[in-house]
């Protein structure tokens, strides 16, 4: 029983990390209606930046989180402004999605060129220190990810519900033309949205780097899982992404122990196909927000 509860705990902690990555992905999908295939590569870029910051500047990765959030926000805004926005007028909406696939490949190869295919370990003091709760044990890094996950989802929730900008973001998703008539600059909304999505990944990068080795293809692992989370939660739903992330964290942790570590991805993606077959709108999706 203790083992089971320990696994549940591990799963929820992991879910916190998936939540941060997935919330960014689902936001971009729900508002811009864009599947961002470069999401993982932004995470990868953030992880290399974390590695550079820790090894060259001697900073703790957690200290790098705020500047990384800022840098990734700017990168996200720039991607939307200079790559995706010009494609908005394209005859086929899929062109934007192909552009993110291209960006993903370009970033992976840029990383290969700059850093080679080796794994880079980001040093971090105390991240792996255990904390004991009675019979249960978590490490500092896990707890930080979980706390950050909750903070990001809660923060974004209040931002979207309460602020003028958040409301304008929702309005743009629900009715683009009407939002323009209210005086909303929708291109700016898209830039901010992509920026926020990328900023989430910047935070995730600073938290993941100390516990997971960095390589050019590291983003793929995390973001493939995030796609499962986004579909499970209902594409575009913030709450759905959060609950979905915790569920997938649990599945990851439990199946890794009770079935086999090598098979946990089989379980996760088997689940993915099942959701698509049985409930394509996800657990919390209502097919809402569509024009």
């Amino acid at each position: 029983m203790d083992t089971f509860l320990q696994l549940v705990l591990n799963g929820l902690m992991l879910g916190g990390l998936f939540a941060i990555i997935s919330v960014g992905l689902t936001l971009i999908f729900g508002i811009i209606r864009l599947v961002n295939f470069a999401h993982g590569e932004l995470l990868m870029a953030g992880m290399y930046l974390t590695w550079i910051g820790t090894t060259k500047l001697g900073l703790h990765p957690y200290l790098l989180a705020p500047p990384l959030v800022l840098v990734l926000f700017v990168i996200g805004v720039a991607i939307q402004r200079f790559i995706l926005q010009p494609l908005l007028e394209a005859r086929d909406a899929h062109v934007q999605i192909f552009a993110t696939v291209g960006l993903s490949t370009a970033l992976i190869n840029l990383a290969l060129l700059l850093f080679g295919a080796d794994l880079y370990a980001t040093p971090a003091a105390h991240v792996r220190d255990p904390i004991l709760f009675g019979p249960f044990r978590v490490v500092v890094g896990q707890l930080v990810m979980f706390g950050a996950g909750i903070a990001v989802v809660t923060g974004l929730h209040f931002f979207m519900e309460r602020s003028f900008l958040g409301r304008a973001i929702r309005a743009t998703a629900q009715h683009r033309a009407a939002a323009q008539l209210m005086g909303v600059d929708v291109n700016r909304i898209y830039m901010v949205t992509f920026g926020i999505g990328a900023a989430c990944v910047g935070l995730a990068a600073a938290l993941v780097a100390p516990v997971y080795p960095t390589s050019p293809t590291v983003g793929t692992y995390f973001v493939l899982t995030a796609f499962v989370v986004v579909v499970l939660g209902g594409m575009g739903s913030l709450h759905g992404a959060f609950i979905g992330a915790l569920l997938i964290g649990l599945v990851d942790s439990l199946s890794g122990f009770y079935i086999a570590p090598d098979l946990k991805e089989v379980v996760i993606f088997g689940l993915f196909i099942l959701i698509l077959l049985l409930r394509p709108t996800g657990l919390f999706g209502l097919g809402r927000g569509s024009e």
């Binding site: 003028f164 409301r167 304008a168 929702r170 309005a171 629900q174 009715h175 033309a177 009407a178 939002a179 008539l181 209210m182 005086g183 909303v184 809402r288 927000g289």
Partner: peptide, 19 residues
């Protein structure tokens, strides 16, 4: 009409005062 269907009426009105 072109309202924001999944927003409350109050939020729709707030959007009207966006400038």
């Amino acid at each position: 009409r072109q309202l924001f269907p999944f927003m409350s009426v109050r939020d729709n009105l707030r959007m009207g005062a966006y400038t």
